[in-house]
């Protein structure tokens, strides 16, 4: 089975009786960058954990290459599906190389030391992300952007073709955000399938083949970004008037509407998802 497609269909999940996801469906194929866009509390993180097999859904099913995710042994799943968490601090000063080598765990097994080949793969991943010079630096002492690169390098070292990234641009400066988006595009061109959550509609336009909009636990739209991200949909999603604008060179940018202050306040509840779902 080479480069299988991941598909979540009609996922339903609730925490303590509060519905977080209902009938959420999403697909990820190799070669694609898919962005998952949603307001705070829309259920993005829950959907991500379910797609990664970290949380069993209460309804619906996630399949990888047609086979239910729950039928995969964890180690085999790790060979197909890699998780790139939000940049975090670790308590121990592992070197960047050690962090990347952890990606070889599913391949070597839990108890074997990484061999020569594993080290070569880790070096290649470091080189691919242009952080070979950081290999010996402690992960605790590099910048947020460099840590994000190290975590992506670990995912590449894992050998999985599908990467799931949780808000990869968070905490990165503007230059690093753009570099990250370009990197994701080029990884997709190499055949990786990439699913990321984001809070930036502009990042969706700059990098994605598809965008899925998650609102109140439901995917309300899924398709090419320029088609999906209309003024009406984005304004409704974020509760603020938003105006996608076409630049003279043909590119689309997402901006808050200039006259947004004059919108009636009732149209914009601050946390629409929680208010509606708890009713």
């Amino acid at each position: 089975m080479s480069d299988p497609t991941l598909s979540a269909s009609q996922i339903r999940h609730a925490y303590r009786g509060r519905t977080v996801l209902h009938d959420a469906s999403l697909e990820l194929a190799p070669g694609q960058v898919v962005s998952l866009l949603g307001a705070n509390g829309a259920g993005k993180s829950t959907l991500l954990r379910i797609i990664l097999g970290l949380l069993p859904p209460q309804g619906g099913e996630v399949r990888l290459g047609g086979r239910p995710l729950r039928d995969y042994p964890r180690r085999e799943l790790a060979g197909h599906l890699a998780y790139v968490p939000q940049v975090h601090a670790t308590p121990f000063p592992y070197s960047v190389r050690q962090v990347v080598l952890m990606g070889r765990l599913p391949a070597t097994g839990l108890f074997a030391a990484p061999g020569h080949q594993d080290r070569m793969i880790a070096e290649q991943a470091l080189a691919r992300l242009g952080i070979g010079h950081l290999a010996e630096r402690p992960y605790t002492e590099i910048s947020g952007g460099e840590r994000q690169m190290a975590l992506i390098a670990r995912a590449l070292a894992q050998g999985s073709r599908l990467l799931i990234l949780d808000e990869p641009a968070t905490g990165l400066d503007y230059g690093n955000q753009i570099a990250l988006l370009d990197l994701l595009r080029s990884l997709a061109a190499e055949g990786y399938g990439i699913l990321k959550t984001t809070h930036h509609p502009d990042h969706v336009l700059a990098s994605s083949d598809r965008v899925a909009i998650l609102k109140d636990g439901h995917i309300i739209a899924d398709g090419p970004p320029e088609n999906v991200m209309s003024a009406a949909l984005l304004s409704d999603l974020y509760g603020v008037a938003i105006a996608p604008t076409r630049l003279p060179d043909g590119r689309l940018v997402i901006l808050p509407a200039a006259d947004r202050a004059r919108r009636p306040p009732s149209a914009a509840p601050i946390f629409p998802s929680t208010l509606e779902l708890s009713a």
């Binding site: 990664l52 970290l54 180690r75 790790a78 670790t90 990606g103 839990l110």
Partner: peptide
Amino acid sequence: TMGDDEARSLGV
């Protein structure tokens, strides 16, 4: 030490 979800996604 990297976190539960990360360790699980690495097959642990």
